[in-house]
Amino acid sequence: MNWRKLRIFILTVLALALIPATRYYQIDVPLLHFLKGSRAIDPLTLHLAGEFVENNLGTEQGADGSVTVRMIAQQYLFVPHCILVPAGVPVHLRITSADAVHSLAFNGTDYNVKVLPGTISEAQLRFSNPGDFKTVCREFCGAGHYAMRSELKVVPREQFPVLRAGERGNCAAQ
């Protein structure tokens, strides 16, 4: 009887431990797909519905102090062009492509996120110190590729504007 209880207990702990582990290592498991829904998205209709409509792009403030940043990569620019995030908080990046394969690299950091059309790329970032970063596309995407750059401004937490419901932060709002 004790053995069985112990076995159940260990299995439960392992099963639960799997969830943060897959989150941390961003492992793509079917279970997560099942729980979170598919990450497939039609690159041709981003502007019509869903989380990448214009007014949902930019920085969203979470209730727990973290922020979610949504961006679109397209030939040959990132929108929004300038991203504003507070320093020292978890930044959940969600980005997708409207056309080709791109990548979003933050100069001076080792973050480099691959962006594919048809799927949402997610990454968990954190910028501990305020500063300005140039972000560049590191995946050759066509004629205007080398000019495909944008900016990321990291500001001290107290300088990040308080956003109204439904409002998204960007550099212009600072």
């Binding site: 299995l11 439960t12 099963a15 639960l16 969830i19 989150r23 997560l32 729980l35 979170k36 829904g37 041709l44 209709t45 502007h47 019509l48 519905a49 989380e51 409509v53 214009e54 007014n55 949902n56 979610t68 419901a165 439904g166």
Partner: peptide, 30 residues
């Protein structure tokens, strides 16, 4: 176990507040 998994799963769902979307054009290049 089922309860735990479902609870964690729903916690991971991104809670998005519904804002009316601004659509630039109804055309899409399908």
């Amino acid at each position: 176990l089922a309860v735990a998994v479902v609870a964690t799963g729903s916690m991971m769902l991104v809670a998005s507040d519904s804002v009316p979307e601004r659509i630039p054009s109804y055309v899409s290049w399908t």
